[in-house]
Amino acid sequence: MKKWLSYGILCLLIPAVIIGGALLFGDRQYAWISLCVAVFSCVPFFIRFEKSATDIKRLVLLAVMVALSVVGRIIFTPIPGFKPVTAFVIITAMYFGSEAGFLTGALSAVISNFYFGQGPWTPFQMFSWGMIGLLAGLFAEILKKNKLVLCIFAVVSGVLYSLLMDVWTVLWADGFFNIERYLAAIISSMQFTLIYAVSNLIFLLLFAKPIGKVLERVKEKYGI
């Protein structure tokens, strides 16, 4: 009963917040809706994670992977865009599954922004990195086996991240989806897209094998 009540509240609350905001904020409604979508799309994952009987070992390993990607982002602060976060998210997803991938991505965004500054972009980073983790988890087996697929996935996820963040830029600046500005944003962020893709490629090629070996070993040793 209590469970159904909480689901019912969620099912009513989420549309109410979105519609209410859209009515209230008139011509900035698209920015509001996109922010809501980014936040609320993370909610089901978080709820599932909370409800599931997850082992403490898994929780702690997840924390380690999140911390590693945050440390990576901090270490590479001097080179803009060149960050190992996406690579770590993908590696975690490959060895611990989609859910772990999504959570590592989303939580890395929250935590690293404690260091780099929170902002309205945080939910979008959570969403983008989380989705990349989710996708990597779905293709985990083939990513582990085939190096070429891994390379393609690294490049695609870098481009995907950039495209998703550009959607946010446009919605925030224009209040609606201005296709002209979106194209301009894609072109002006081209160098970053390139750096994202290249850094993902480098970090995945460097780390996927050795980290994978360590993770497999830990999994086997402690029976996770």
Binding site: E50, L59, A63, A67, V70
Partner: peptide, 20 residues
């Protein structure tokens, strides 16, 4: 509200200086 997630968050926050 989210005990497991905040546990992961707080442990990750504690791991960062430890890793350094």
């Amino acid at each position: 509200a989210v005990p497991k997630l905040s546990l992961v968050l707080s442990m990750a926050l504690r791991f960062i200086p430890m890793f350094k």
